[in-house]
Design a protein around this nucleic acid. Structure first.
Length: 226
DNA sequence: GCATTAACCACAG
DNA sequence: CTGTGGTTAATGC
């Protein structure tokens, strides 16, 4: 969409920073940048995948249709790769990604990306580091979410949004109550109830989708207690 | 038994 | 899309 060279991109992944100039030129030749609006589908579960997808700006949810309902696997903030496992791990996408804020995304041809991995060990190593960190984070989330009760899970999620995504105590929820349920693994009703409870206890302030964390320490306690 | 937690349903803004 | 109330099932004390 834009003719910007990857070399000049200010949103390069840590791995891509280790590419040589010629390699960045090579990447530029084999990628396409696309803008998505909030709510747009970026790639779809069960479709054929031939691109590495890099979230350049914005926010996206990675989600999978399960046997009974939708599950949001994680929220991804740019800059970050969106689907290395789903591209290299299988020919078919194992999950979908949808923009939850306006977003720009680079599609990089998988074969050309693979060549860069083969040619540049530092680049490859940095990608592995990134994949490992993500796996550890996912493991931690998996354990926490499966052992905590609903209030603990909600507290954990609110803190995570505030600390890792927005870096503020006040933020606009990027997800509906239903989607929060899909993320945490509970019903939309439980989300509603717990959120109004937290509000009544003065731990958060709630104006529709705008959330302010008033007492992070208490939220921390709820998160730890489970 | 009784209390707690949370899902499911239904109905109302 | 949300909030709320009633009902129900599972689990723990």
């Amino acid at each position: 969409m834009k003719e910007l060279n990857c070399k000049d991109c200010i949103n390069k992944s840590p791995a891509a920073r280790l590419l040589k100039e010629s390699e960045l030129e090579y990447m530029t030749q084999n990628r396409v940048e696309v803008n998505f609006k909030k709510g747009d589908l970026i790639f779809k579960q069960n479709s054929y995948s031939t691109n590495i997808i890099f979230l350049k700006t914005g926010l996206a949810k990675v989600h999978m249709q399960g046997p009974f309902k939708e599950k949001i696997l994680r929220i991804v903030k740019a800059p970050s790769y969106l689907g290395i496992p789903t591209t290299f791990g299988d020919k078919i996408n194992q999950y979908s990604a949808t923009a939850i804020e306006d977003t720009s995304v680079c599609f990089i041809d998988a074969n050309h990306f693979k060549k860069l991995i083969h040619d540049n060990g530092k680049f490859a190593y940095e990608l592995i580091i990134d994949l490992c960190r993500n796996e550890l984070l996912d493991d931690l989330r998996c354990v926490n979410q499966s052992q905590k009760q609903i209030p603990g899970r909600i507290a954990e999620t609110l803190l995570s949004l505030s600390q890792h995504i927005y870096h503020k105590n006040t933020f606009i929820l990027p997800l509906s109550r239903n989607e929060l349920g899909d993320l945490i693994g509970t019903s939309r009703e439980s989300i509603s109830r717990i959120l109004t409870d937290l509000c009544n206890e003065g731990i958060i302030d709630l104006k529709a989708k705008e959330i302010t964390i008033l007492k992070p320490e208490l939220l921390e306690q709820i998160s730890k207690k489970g």
